[in-house]
């Protein structure tokens, strides 16, 4: 199976922080096919367009996927209003995820705000070979730190205002790490300006780097060409599509 669409029950729901919801969905067929960096396209009740949400954790044994999302407007509000036992209408798993490197010795995972959830699948994959740098606006926004710690990864917490962890942008610890250590790969998800800076740092240091992008979507599977983003491939400008070619792209091909 590549992807499918069906109704799947919510088996666990938690509120992680201000407007941040975590849900576990029992969807064995999707969980079985899912890979780190892929996303689910979820239909809020009564709306026309689905909402793309990254997969935060994959548990193939019990057929569970976890998503963590921020309630923004009506669509995410309606998804958040669902409770354990109710079904979500899910199309997935979609997109091209992160490139996993079984021989990597030292990788850096960077999450900015609601870009942190997809980093958990990678933290679990790389364990103690990974350092997670997570950045948030302030202490109230901090999520997933216990999970990152349990994954065995080292973790560096930053906040913009210093109310938790270091008062720093994620790029500061990133620069320190690559100055002192041999880094095999950098993976990042978060606000576009953050991804742009990280890409520049990684490209200058010749370190393999992948970033997960966001774009508004229609179909979610590569048919409608709604989710276009500009890429450079073999020196040529091309239109990529976040839902199919991404959401994960090489830092070298994205045109910011």
């Amino acid at each position: 199976m590549e992807y499918t669409k069906s109704l799947y029950p919510i088996v666990k729901k938690e509120v992680l922080g201000k407007n941040i919801i975590s849900m576990n969905i029992l969807c064995p067929d999707i969980a079985d096919a899912a890979e780190p960096g892929q996303f689910l396209h979820i239909l809020p009740d009564g709306m026309t367009l689905r909402r793309p949400i990254s997969i935060c954790d994959i548990n193939k044994e019990n057929g569970n996927l976890r998503i963590v999302f921020e309630v923004k407007h009506e669509g995410t509000e309606r998804i958040a209003a669902k409770n354990v036992g109710e079904n979500l209408d899910v199309l997935g798993p979609l997109g091209h995820g992160f490139t996993l490197m079984p021989n990597a010795e030292n990788v850096i995972l960077i999450g900015g705000g609601i870009g942190n959830p997809p980093m958990l699948t990678l933290a679990k994959y790389y364990g103690n070979k990974a350092t997670v740098i997570s950045g948030f606006r302030s202490a109230e926004c901090v999520i997933l730190q216990d999970e990152f710690n349990r994954s065995g990864a080292k973790s560096v917490l930053c906040t913009d205002n210093g109310t938790a962890g270091r008062k720093a942008l994620v790029t500061e610890p990133l620069k320190e790490l690559i100055a002192n250590e041999n880094v095999d790969a950098i993976y990042a998800c978060g606000p576009t300006p953050m991804l742009k800076f990280i890409s520049a740092i990684a490209n200058n240091a010749y370190i393999f780097c992948e970033v997960s992008l966001e774009e508004r979507m229609g179909c979610g599977i590569g048919a409608c060409l709604v989710c276009a983003c500009k890429l450079k491939k073999e020196g040529k400008d091309v239109m990529g599509h976040v839902c199919k070619d991404g959401p994960v792209f090489s830092s070298k091909e994205v045109q910011w």
Binding site: T48, L49, R216, G218, C224, L225, A228, M239
Partner: peptide, 18 residues
């Protein structure tokens, strides 16, 4: 095609500018 965003939702519908 046009630059993104190329889609917006509206009540019971959507608008595209692919």
């Amino acid at each position: 095609g046009n630059p993104s965003p190329r889609i917006a939702e509206c009540p019971s519908g959507m608008i595209n500018s692919v």
